[in-house]
């Protein structure tokens, strides 16, 4: 479903701030893979997601989604294949627009936007049903401004928007990191359900080792711009935080340097 072939990325190339974030990374996701990605700060986790989404171009390498080479496509064109949820709940939705307007924008993803009236009563009913499944009471707030909702509510709606038009690939960039633990758990549960129900292929970056183990069928660990661990199936199910930390130390030759990962 997703093929990342030998990609590299260096920021601020040729300046004193030059930073090689990814070097020669390859990764293949099978159809239906739900991959969790962990790693310390600056390991290159978010960069991979942003390169796949087309936020900035790769220096070298290829990105292929479902057989389509998207390496040269701009961000908005790749969006036809990709659903995204960001870390900042404000980033995934338009604050000054209504809930139903936001959903309608997501509903047009991958289509040519013409002068058809955007929200018909049929659409509205469909949005209402989808929102009802979130079980957050949002089905009665179709004409509430997005900016008035809480971070958790906004992330849940962003998730819904990312999966409304079934994407070939779902990219989740620490999408629960800005939420309180209870809300984060709820949003993760919704994530898991949406991925399973739609049998989506997903890539989820997280700082939380427990979540990384609990969710998905495959786990990869990154360090200093390289994939240092790739575990799947039974082996992944039997992982413990202690075992992960040990593997990290062994593979990277350093202690895992993220308090956030340990404190959860």
């Amino acid at each position: 479903m997703l093929e990342i072939k030998n990609i590299s990325k260096t920021f601020n190339s040729g300046t004193i701030n030059e930073k090689k974030v990814l070097s020669n990374v390859s990764l293949t996701l099978e159809d239906g893979d739900f991959v969790t990605v962990i790693g310390g700060n600056g390991a290159g986790k978010s960069t991979i997601l942003n390169l796949v989404a087309g936020v900035y171009p790769v220096d070298e390498g290829k990105i292929i989604i479902d057989g389509n080479d998207v390496t040269k496509l701009p961000e908005h064109k790749r969006a036809a294949f990709i659903g995204r949820v960001f870390q900042d709940p404000r980033m995934g939705t338009a604050s000054d627009m209504w809930v139903e307007e936001n959903m309608s924008i997501a509903d047009s993803r991958g289509h040519r936007r013409g002068v058809r009236w955007a929200i018909t009563s049929k659409d509205r009913e469909r949005f209402r049903e989808q929102l009802k499944l979130l079980d957050l009471g949002l089905e009665n707030r179709l004409t509430t401004k997005m900016g008035l909702l809480s971070g958790g509510q906004r992330q849940a709606i962003t998730l819904l928007m990312a999966t409304l038009k079934r994407p070939k690939l779902l990219l989740l960039d620490e999408h629960t990191a800005a939420l309180d633990p209870k809300t984060a758990a709820k949003v993760l549960e919704i994530t898991d359900r949406l991925v399973k129900e739609n049998s989506l292929t997903a890539l989820m970056v997280t700082h939380n080792m427990k979540d990384a183990i609990a969710y998905g069928n495959r786990l990869i660990m990154m360090n200093a711009g390289k994939v240092i661990l790739d575990v799947r199936g039974e082996e992944k199910k039997n992982l413990t935080i202690e075992a992960l930390l040990e593997m990290f130390t062994k593979a990277s030759g350093a202690e895992f340097a993220s308090d956030r990962a340990l404190l959860s």
């Binding site: 989404a53 701009p74 961000e75 908005h76 064109k77 969006a79 036809a80 990709i82 995204r84 960001f86 404000r90 980033m91 995934g92 939705t93 338009a94 604050s95 000054d96 627009m97 307007e101 309608s104 924008i105 997501a106 047009s108 993803r109 991958g110 289509h111 936007r113 013409g114 002068v115 058809r116 009236w117 955007a118 929200i119 928007m161």
Partner: peptide, 26 residues
Amino acid sequence: FFGTELGMSLRATGNNLDMSRAQGIN
């Protein structure tokens, strides 16, 4: 116009560029 899909994409652009691009708006 601003109730159509195209008009809606104009409003989204002014509101949130990141979200607009992620939703496939040029």
